[in-house]
Simulated assay, not measured.
Amino acid sequence: MTTAVYFDLDGTLCSYAVPFEEQFESTVAPYGEPSEAAYDAYVDRLLDALDSCESEPYRRAFEAVTDRIPLDVTPETLAREYCEVEREASVVSADTRRVLDRVAKTAPIGILTNGDDRQQRSKLEHHGLAEAVDEVIVSNGVDVRKPDRRIFDLAKARLPADDYVYVGDSYEEDVLGARQAGFRTVYVTANDEPADVEAADAVVSSVGDLLEPESLPASIRPTFRTTS
């Protein structure tokens, strides 16, 4: 029986060495004085654009910034420079790479993530992950986002298999969304203490924990067990 495994990206496969607000400030500061109100406007507009699967969400977000504070730069330039800052701040651990390498030996694997298609794929290329997986699906590239069942059904169509597992750090978007589409689920809590994990087949604090499959429930364990 073939099991396909999909992973979320941000917060699951990669973390960030620099907080998002600091990334914003370092992008804006060469052109003017960043403010808390400008950052809030940026976040609100970016999330709205991503939720609506709009094109060029970072440019749209920085248009909201330049409407609020005087900056000697275009939104297009800010968006481009911010995306570079965010990409450089992203971190993929050695344990995460080991998990991907292990799973890839016995199962088709993919990345299913919300976000801007160009930006998410640039992170994958930056870390050499695009070559490590069989499929990449990004919400803004397919006009539907998690937890909508349609994006999980698309994931199934892209990697035909008998069974599916999804690994992600958002209970609502990843665990509930995938579970409703028939995936078994691994909830990455990042050391938080979630109140409700009922829909998760397994709960881990990081992707690296999957290197110790004997601690996982029997329904999930074989997917991450080494073949050696």
Rank of each mutant, 00 (worst) to 15 (best):
Ser139Met: 13
Gln119Ser: 05
Gln120Asn: 09
Thr113Asn: 13
Asp101Glu: 10
Asp143His: 00
Gly115Asp: 13
Glu125Asp: 09
Val92Trp: 08
Val144Asp: 07
Val144Cys: 10
Glu125Phe: 04
Pro147Leu: 00
Glu86Asp: 13
Lys146Ile: 03
Arg118His: 11
Ser90Gly: 04
Val133Gln: 10
Arg87Glu: 14
Val99Leu: 06
Val142Tyr: 00
Arg80Trp: 01
Leu129Tyr: 02
Val99Gly: 04
Thr106Ser: 06
Arg121Met: 12
Gly141Asn: 01
Ser139Leu: 06
Ala132His: 07
Ala89Cys: 06
Val142Glu: 06
Ala89Arg: 15
Gln120Glu: 14
Ser139Trp: 11
Thr113Gly: 11
Arg80Glu: 07
Cys83His: 10
Val85Ser: 03
Ile111Met: 11
Ile109Lys: 12
Arg118Cys: 04
Arg98Gln: 06
Lys146Val: 00
Glu84Asp: 02
Asp95Glu: 06
Val103Met: 07
Asn114Phe: 07
Lys146His: 01
Leu129Cys: 09
Asp143Val: 03
Asp134Thr: 09
Ser90Arg: 11
Glu135Ala: 10
Asp134Asn: 09
Arg102Gly: 06
Val103Gly: 05
Val99Pro: 04
Glu81Ala: 03
Thr106Phe: 11
Ile137Trp: 10
Val138His: 13
Asp116Met: 13
Ser93Ala: 05
Val92Asp: 00
Ser93Asn: 08
Leu129Ser: 04
Cys83Arg: 10
His126Ser: 02
His127Asp: 09
Ser122Asp: 08
Arg102Met: 14
Asn114Asp: 13
Arg80Phe: 08
Asp143Gln: 08
Val103Ala: 04
Arg97Asn: 01
Gly110His: 10
Thr106Cys: 08
Glu135Asn: 06
Arg87Val: 01
Gly141Ile: 03
Gln120Thr: 05
Lys123Ala: 00
Val92Phe: 08
Asp116Ser: 08
Glu125Gly: 02
Arg97Tyr: 05
Ile111Pro: 13
Gly110Trp: 15
Val144Glu: 04
Asn140Cys: 09
Thr106His: 09
Leu112Trp: 15
Val133Gly: 13
Leu124Ala: 04
Glu84Gly: 13
Asn114Gln: 02
Ser122Trp: 03
Val144Pro: 03
Glu125Ile: 05
Ala132Cys: 04
Ala132Ser: 12
Val92Cys: 08
Asp134Pro: 03
Val142Gly: 00
Lys105Phe: 12
Val138Trp: 14
Val99Lys: 05
Arg121Cys: 15
Leu112Phe: 14
Arg102Tyr: 02
Asn140Tyr: 11
Pro108Asp: 09
Val133Asp: 11
Ala107Cys: 15
Val138Ala: 08
Ser139Ala: 09
Ser139Cys: 09
Arg102Ser: 06
Ile137Thr: 03
Gln120Leu: 08
Val142Arg: 01
Gly115Ile: 12
Val138Gln: 13
Val103Arg: 11
Val136Asp: 03
Gly110Lys: 15
Ala89Trp: 07
Glu81Arg: 05
Leu112Tyr: 15
Val85Glu: 07
Ala79Arg: 07
Val142Gln: 00
Asp143Leu: 01
Val103Thr: 06
Ala94Phe: 07
Ala130His: 10
Ser90Trp: 09
Leu129Met: 11
Lys123Glu: 00
Gly115Glu: 15
Glu125Arg: 07
